[in-house]
Simulated assay, not measured.
Amino acid sequence: MKKIVTLGEIMLRFSTNAGERLQQTNTLSMHYGGAEANVAVSLAHFGYQTYFVSKVPNNPLGRAVERHLKSHGVHTDYLVKGGERLGSYYVESGVGERSAQVIYDRKYSSFSNLKSEELNFEEIFNGAHLFHVSGITLALSAELRKLTLQALKFAKEKGITTSFDFNYRAKLWSQQEAAEAIKPLLPYVDICSCGELDAIHLLGIEETDPSLSKEERLCYYYGKIQEMYPNIQYMCSTFRKVISASENTLQGNLYLDGELYQSKVHHISQIVDRIGGGDAFMAGVLYGILEKLPSNQLISFAAAASALKHTVHGDCNLFSTDEVLSFAENAPGKIVR
Rank of each mutant, 00 (worst) to 15 (best):
V41H: 02
I232P: 05
L202I: 12
R145N: 13
D322P: 01
T27M: 12
K3W: 10
I335K: 15
G62D: 05
A44F: 03
G258M: 05
R67Y: 13
L308R: 06
T16R: 07
L147V: 10
A44G: 04
E215P: 02
E20L: 07
L202E: 00
N113K: 14
N26T: 13
F46W: 10
G87D: 06
A305Y: 09
S109V: 08
Y104T: 02
T25N: 09
N17A: 14
Y287P: 08
N317V: 03
L254E: 01
G8W: 01
E122F: 07
M30S: 11
F327H: 12
I160F: 10
F131D: 02
V265I: 15
N26K: 14
A44N: 00
G96M: 07
T16K: 09
F121W: 15
A142L: 13
E9H: 09
V5E: 04
G82I: 08
K292H: 14
Q226H: 11
Q101D: 11
T311L: 07
P187R: 03
K153C: 10
L140T: 00
C236T: 15
I243Q: 09
F46I: 01
A37E: 07
L140Y: 00
R98W: 01
I4Y: 10
S295Y: 13
S163Y: 03
L152R: 02
G127V: 01
G8V: 11
A128Q: 09
Q251S: 01
V5F: 04
A280P: 04
P294A: 00
F239V: 11
C194V: 01
A100S: 15
K107A: 14
L256E: 12
T50A: 06
G135N: 04
L86D: 01
S116P: 09
K3G: 10
V5S: 05
T148F: 12
T148C: 15
L7F: 15
N248P: 08
V39E: 02
A328T: 10
A245K: 07
E143I: 02
L185C: 15
K158C: 04
N296Y: 02
A305R: 00
N167A: 04
E157C: 03
S134T: 15
Y261Q: 04
H129N: 14
F301Q: 01
F239R: 11
N58P: 08
I136C: 00
D315H: 11
I4V: 15
T311K: 13
S269L: 12
Y287F: 15
L197Q: 14
E123N: 14
L212F: 11
M11V: 09
E122M: 09
L138S: 08
Q49M: 09
S15T: 12
Y104G: 06
I243V: 12
Y89I: 04
I271N: 01
R85S: 13
F46E: 04
Q101G: 00
H267F: 12
L144D: 11
S263Y: 06
Y234L: 06
L7R: 05
